[in-house]
Simulated assay, not measured.
Amino acid sequence: MAVLLTEDQVLECRARIRAVAEEQFATRGLAATSLRSIAAELGWTAASLYRYFRNKNELLAVTRAAAHDRFSDRVEAAYASTTDLWDRSRAVGQAYVDFAFAEPHAYQLMFAFSQPEAEKTEALRVAERRSRRTLTAYVDDMIAAGLVQGDPVVLGHAYWAGIHGLIVLQMAGKLDPAMPFDTIRHEIMRLVTRGAQPPIGEAGMARRHVHETPSPPASAMPNASTEHPGRIHKEPS
Rank of each mutant, 00 (worst) to 15 (best):
H157A: 03
L124V: 12
E122H: 13
Y138M: 13
P229A: 13
M142F: 03
K174A: 09
E187S: 06
I200C: 08
D140M: 11
T134I: 12
S114Q: 15
T213R: 03
P222A: 12
M189H: 05
G204L: 10
D182T: 15
S225M: 05
T183W: 13
D151G: 08
P214V: 14
P222F: 00
L135S: 01
M189Y: 03
A118D: 12
N223A: 05
S131Y: 07
M221Y: 04
D140Q: 07
Q170F: 04
G195E: 03
V154L: 01
G201V: 02
M142H: 00
A127S: 15
V153Q: 04
V139D: 00
V192G: 00
H211Y: 07
A112E: 11
T226V: 10
P177H: 13
H186G: 05
A118H: 12
F113Y: 15
H186S: 10
R129L: 06
G201K: 05
I167N: 14
E202M: 11
T121R: 04
H164A: 08
G204Q: 11
K120V: 01
T136N: 08
N223Q: 08
I143C: 02
Q170N: 15
D182Y: 08
S114D: 12
A145S: 05
A158F: 02
M110Y: 11
G201L: 12
D151F: 04
H186W: 15
E187V: 03
M221N: 03
A178E: 05
L166Q: 10
T183K: 12
M171A: 07
A161S: 12
V192I: 11
Y159A: 00
L166N: 02
E227H: 10
F111P: 12
F111Q: 06
P216G: 09
I184K: 08
R194C: 07
A206I: 14
M205K: 06
E187T: 09
H186C: 04
D151I: 10
A206D: 14
H186T: 10
P116W: 11
P116G: 06
